[in-house]
Design a protein around this nucleic acid. Structure first.
Lengths: 187, 187
DNA sequence: CCTCGAATCGGAATGCGTTCCGCTTAAGAC
DNA sequence: GTCTTAAGCGGAACGCATTCCGATTCGAGG
């Protein structure tokens, strides 16, 4: 595939910064496609060409921190990165993922609402693969593939949003419960 | 609150049967509010008055089997109902929930997509409360509240839909993984 | 049977995500 | 510089969920 044309790259940048401005000013609710397009001085068609749909735009806004997070658990310092023992890395990873999710809760909620199955792709696969690797070292005979899903599911944006905002539960309590599950796996 | 007016009750029934007919004929995708209203011979306003929104209509369609399921784990025969030991009941419950979710996957997906946070209310609370009770007996010192969420989350319609339809994973494999987590809790 | 008010009804209007398509333009080839 | 063409652009048009509000109907009380 060819390199992006210069006007396309310029528009992508204009759109992203307009979207960031709007989110900063009016929150995620104010982020409508028409409004972003208008603020960026661009037609809506352009917006869709660049980002696919509303959830694609949201993921693009999330992307920067996402990359940092992935770098941290793939090649950063322990206990998140390589070096610590697997059980410790799993716990550190789940805690870090929970924090990151809470940090970008609104954008993630919007993205998952806009197209619910898009969640399982991109970042999710990276998390999943990472956990599969760690659990495989921890319990070679277990079904790491499904266990990884089971550990990731409780950190969905929807559940976190519900418990944090309506349930009066803190993140640390949720991650502690996950720690408990992990301890059960280790035996 | 007063009893429902007779025309209202009649319309509710007409709407539900029209919706069932449409789902049977064209699947969940064909279930648009305007179409249901037309098929029921009713205005869209009526539909919204009765069911609130699209997801409310979906939950109403799910409701019948839902009641049966709840009766089964609250007062049915063991191992789902009272009588079996807590760990066995947790496992039986999760397996039954997984089956029920798969059975109504399309409707559940639609309902959760339409309004994602509506999921945590009604049926979810019943499941959650049930698990909290069982886990409380299993591990009195643990955080049953959060552990219950953690065991329910992997059975979300979205995750099941993704793994079953795109991942080539079977339900029994997913529930086996959950069994493993439960075993870890029991020690 | 008649009256009256509140509950209900229906469908037009609204808002928003998404798609479509004829026009424009970047950028490599000559 | 010119030509060519595929990529990109913009905004009108569409579909659908949801809201609004004037007209209608139920049903309790007289």
């Amino acid at each position: 595939m060819r390199r992006e044309r210069s006007d396309a790259a310029r528009n992508r940048a204009k759109i992203l910064s307009a979207a960031e401005r709007i989110v900063a000013a009016h929150g995620v609710e104010g982020l409508s496609m028409a409004e972003v397009a208008a603020a960026a001085g661009v037609g809506v068609g352009t917006l869709y060409r660049r980002f696919g749909d509303r959830s694609g735009l949201a993921y693009a806004l999330i992307d920067r921190r996402e990359r940092e997070f992935q770098a941290a658990f793939l090649e950063g310092p322990p206990p998140l990165g390589p070096g610590a023992d697997p059980a410790e890395r799993v716990r550190a990873f789940l805690r870090a993922l929970a924090d990151r999710t809470v940090e970008q809760l609104d954008l993630l909620l919007m993205a998952e609402t806009a197209s619910p199955l898009a969640r399982f792709g991109g970042a999710y696969d990276a998390y999943h693969g990472h956990l599969v690797m760690l659990i495989g070292r921890l319990r070679p005979e277990a079904d790491a593939y499904c266990l990884a899903d089971a550990l990731l599911a409780p950190l969905s944006a929807e559940l976190l949003a519900h418990r944090l905002r309506r349930g009066g539960v803190g993140v640390e309590r949720i991650t502690s419960a996950l720690d408990e599950l992990v301890s059960g796996l280790v035996r």
